[in-house]
Nucleic acid binder design. Structure first.
Length: 360
DNA sequence: AAGGCGGGGCT
DNA sequence: AGCCCAGCCTT
C-alpha cells in the first residue's frame, strides 16, 4: 500500500523570512566553540578538516592541542609525520592530516603561507572538497558560497520535503544550487554555521526533530505537513565484513615491539603491535617467533573494533621474550609521546600497561 | 557510481 | 545492533 503524502498546498515557505529567523536564532543560541572565537583562515581550515564526519565534542580537545602545537601554515608544513599522527591519534581518518601537510606545503610554496581567498582555489587543495571549500570561503573569507554537509542536507530535505536520496552526489549539487539563493551576502559566515547549528541542535539526526522549538517551523513544509520526521531519504548501507586478527604484544623488560603500518590503506603509517591475519593458536604464535626465544606467553582477552567498512575480531597474546629480536622496540615514554597507535589496539595497550605495572 | 577510510555517541 | 556524524579520494 502506498502512503499518500499529499498536502493541502497551503504550507508556507518564505526565503527572506526563513533566513532572518535563522540568523536571529543563531545570534542568540550559537554555541561557544574554540574555532569560532578567532575565525582566521588557518583555524577555520583546521577545524573544518577535523569536523569532517566527526562530532563537535570529539574535535574540541584535538583542535586546541593542534593549533597550539602548530599555530600556522608554516609550522604545519614543516611538522614531522610522527608528530602529526600523534596530534591526530584517536581522531580517525588519518589521511586527513596527511593531506593537510601537503596542503600546507603547497600554500607555503604558491601562496606565501596563506590559504587562498577563493572557493575554486581552495577546492583544488588536497582534502578540500565542495563542503570544506564552501565552509572556509564563507566563514573565513566572507564569500557567498554554500557549505552543504549532512546537517544541511537533512535540514533542507525537511524544509522543502525532498524525496531525493541525500547520499547521492546529484542531490548534493541540487541542494548547493538551491541554497545559493538563500545566502545573505553580508552574513554568509553566520548563515553557514547557523544551518549546521540548527541541524546539530534542533533538526537532529537519529531522534525526533525538535520542531516545537525550531525557529524555522513557520517556513518548514516538512513540519507543516507532518513529514519532517520521516525525512531525509537515505539508501541503506551495505554490511561490514569481518576480519580476524591475532595481536602479539611482544615485551622485553620495559620495552614493547612495534611495527609501522603500510603507507597506504587502513590506518596508513600509524604504529601497531605485531599483527597477524587470521585467528592463530598459541602454538602457531610461538612457532612464528621461535619457541626458543620465548620466556612466557599469556593469552589475552579477545577484542572487537568496528571501523566503517570492516570489523576486526582480535585475539591477543602477550609474549615475554628472552632477548630482543630485530624490530622497533619502544619504551612506555616513547609510546606515549612519539608513536601514534590507533584506537583499535586499545584493549592490548591496556593489557601492556597492566603487565608493566606487575613488573614494577 | 561505489567503495575505502576511524571512532564514538545515540537510539 | 544500527545509524550518523561540519566528507573526501580513488577506482
Amino acid at each position: 500500500m502506498k502512503k499518500c503524502y499529499n498536502t493541502t498546498m497551503k504550507e508556507k515557505h518564505d526565503k527572506q523570512h526563513l533566513v532572518q529567523a535563522l540568523l536571529e536564532w543563531y545570534d542568540a543560541n550559537a554555541r561557544i566553540l574554540p574555532w569560532r572565537s578567532e575565525p582566521t583562515p588557518y583555524r577555520v581550515w583546521v577545524s573544518e578538516i577535523m569536523l569532517q564526519q566527526t562530532r563537535v565534542e570529539a574535535v574540541k580537545p584535538y583542535f586546541e592541542r593542534f593549533v597550539n602545537a602548530l599555530p600556522d601554515v608554516h609550522a604545519l608544513a614543516n611538522a614531522d609525520d610522527d608528530e602529526l599522527h600523534k596530534l591526530w591519534e584517536g581522531l580517525g581518518y588519518y589521511n586527513r592530516v596527511k593531506n593537510m601537510k601537503k596542503c600546507a606545503q603547497y600554500c607555503v610554496k604558491h601562496y606565501a603561507g596563506s590559504l587562498p581567498n577563493s572557493y575554486e582555489l581552495l577546492k583544488q587543495l588536497p582534502g578540500i572538497g565542495d563542503y570544506t571549500a564552501g565552509a572556509i570561503a564563507s566563514i573565513a573569507f566572507h564569500l557567498p558560497y554554500p557549505a552543504v554537509d549532512g546537517n544541511v542536507l537533512r535540514v533542507f530535505s525537511r524544509l522543502l520535503v525532498s524525496e531525493d536520496d541525500i547520499l547521492k552526489e546529484r542531490t548534493k549539487k541540487k541542494f548547493q544550487n538551491i541554497i545559493k539563493e538563500y545566502i545573505p551576502i553580508e552574513r554568509c559566515d553566520a548563515f553557514t554555521q547557523a544551518l549546521m547549528e540548527i541541524g546539530a541542535l534542533i533538526c537532529v539526526p537519529n531522534a525526533m526533530p525538535r520542531c516545537n522549538i525550531c525557529p524555522l517551523a513557520e517556513d518548514c513544509i516538512g513540519y507543516q505537513s507532518h513529514q519532517a520526521q520521516r525525512l531525509p531519504i537515505k539508501e541503506k548501507k551495505k554490511a561490514r565484513r569481518i576480519e580476524k586478527k591475532t595481536i602479539l604484544v611482544v615485551v622485553h623488560q620495559k620495552e614493547v615491539l612495534l611495527q609501522q603500518r603500510a603507507e597506504d590503506g587502513l590506518l596508513a603509517g600509524l604504529y601497531e603491535f605485531i599483527t597477524l591475519d587470521g585467528e592463530r593458536e598459541e602454538e602457531e604464535v610461538m612457532a612464528f617467533l621461535g619457541h626458543e626465544r620465548i620466556h612466557k606467553i599469556i593469552k589475552l582477552r579477545s577484542a572487537k573494533h568496528i571501523f566503517s567498512h570492516v570489523e576486526w575480531h582480535m585475539q591477543g597474546y602477550l609474549l615475554e621474550v628472552k632477548e630482543k629480536l630485530d624490530g622497533l622496540w619502544c619504551t612506555q615514554q616513547a609510546l606515549e609521546q612519539q608513536y601514534a597507535i590507533p584506537t583499535a589496539f586499545k584493549a592490548y595497550k591496556d593489557a601492556l600497561y597492566t603487565w608493566w605495572r606487575t613488573q614494577e
